[in-house]
Design a protein around this nucleic acid. Structure first.
Lengths: 215, 215
DNA sequence: TTTATAACGGAGTGAAACGCTCCGCAAGGT
DNA sequence: ACCTTGCGGAGCGTTTCACTCCGTTATAAA
């Protein structure tokens, strides 16, 4: 082998690196739209890659899903950090929400309970949660976030709007963001009536991620 | 056979009638929570009924799903009629939305395209659409519904909030209705900023229901 | 040019899931 | 006692799917 060329490799190795990204994109699209029980072969097909190549990178379907979760959590962390970097508390929160919904960070909630959570997943989740709590507290103290809204409310909202309903299309995306805008307006502090029901329970929320095997 | 006893039959026939309801309830719960590709055997189990009995009533899984759609549409029609019966335009609309979300009338949107639509389904859909349009127009003219919101916006909102995310539980229901309340507040006319994007296209919305066979 | 290596694609395999049928049985009704 | 009717669920045939295995191909070293 020639000397290491860290970020731009050539030949077969370059193809491998490209395939890695193609695979991840394809997995996101397939699993987000079709549900986690879509066949692995569809992911390979969508990526324009043989199944063999997929399985060389991810030993099992579960490993692929775990990696997908991890990446989505990283994206959520980045979005939250970007939101905090904004000096406008409300704008920062709204941008965080919109970004998460756009790349579907909450779309893998239905996977919860069907795969093992790796330690990296738990620590990423904690990191994301802390950042979002800061985001929410800041908007709350600025008097711009409706009183009573918690970080978990935001998380659940993102989950609901991450769900793709049909095949991905420009129309579908338009409708999703339109409804999201409506819901976000309902989050602003100028809505003075108190929220109904109890705030979501953290215990219940996290509990979904412990594996439930059918047996 | 003895003389007809239309609504209260006895013996074996009574059991049959009871099973019919059990089956329908079970089908709703199973398919709404697990997706339409849940096994039929689960529905029978949930209903506490043998598979044989299920298949005596519904010749195929598709027939069961069609019937499920029809019943859900009827419920939506009833809810819309009830909303129109309310003399308060805004309250009537909100109650319609809440009722639909509560029984999950929009939860079978993902079935669209996987089963044939019967003529009864089309006519029920039209009837429901007309009623909802009245509901929306009335609230719009009363100056209580946010300007730009269409009947299709409402339909898509209901779809989004009909989706069950985990197993059905009191906590899950609490969270769903809490978020719905937020979104509904975003629909009120005191939100003066214009809605982003285009209004949803009726053509795209209905097009989802024509069968797409994979072959 | 030849040889070694590394990544490729996809046919094939074994197992499991699922839609649906069929039949033995029990509970009315007469 | 004797039909009739609806019941439950074991089992059948098919399909689907995760994963393996191997022949092929592109690159790098000799």
């Amino acid at each position: 082998m020639t000397g290491a060329q860290p970020s731009s490799r050539r030949g077969r190795q370059a193809e491998a690196a490209r395939n890695d990204l193609l695979l991840l994109d394809a997995a996101r699209e397939v699993f987000f739209c079709q549900g986690f029980d879509a066949p692995v072969s569809l992911v390979a097909q969508q990526a324009g890659v043989g199944i063999g190549s997929l399985y060389r990178r991810y030993a099992t379907k579960e490993a692929l899903l775990q990696h997908l979760c991890l990446v989505a959590m990283q994206q959520a962390i980045d979005a939250a950090a970007a939101g905090l970097a904004d000096t406008e508390p409300w704008q920062g929160l709204v941008d965080y929400i919109r970004r998460c919904v756009e790349f579907g960070s909450g779309a893998l909630a239905p996977i919860a309970g069907t795969i093992d959570s790796t330690p990296e997943m738990w620590s990423s989740a904690r990191e994301a949660r802390d950042l979002v709590e800061q985001l929410v507290d800041r908007a709350q103290h600025a008097g711009e976030l409706r009183s009573g809204v918690t970080a978990l409310d935001i998380a659940l909202l993102i989950e609901r709007f991450s769900r793709r309903i049909g095949l991905p299309s420009e129309e579908e995306e338009n409708n999703r963001l339109r409804l999201l805008a409506i819901a976000v307006d309902g989050l602003h502090a100028y809505n003075t009536q108190p929220l109904p029901g109890r705030p979501p329970s953290a215990h219940h929320y996290e509990g979904r991620w412990v594996r439930k095997d059918a047996n």
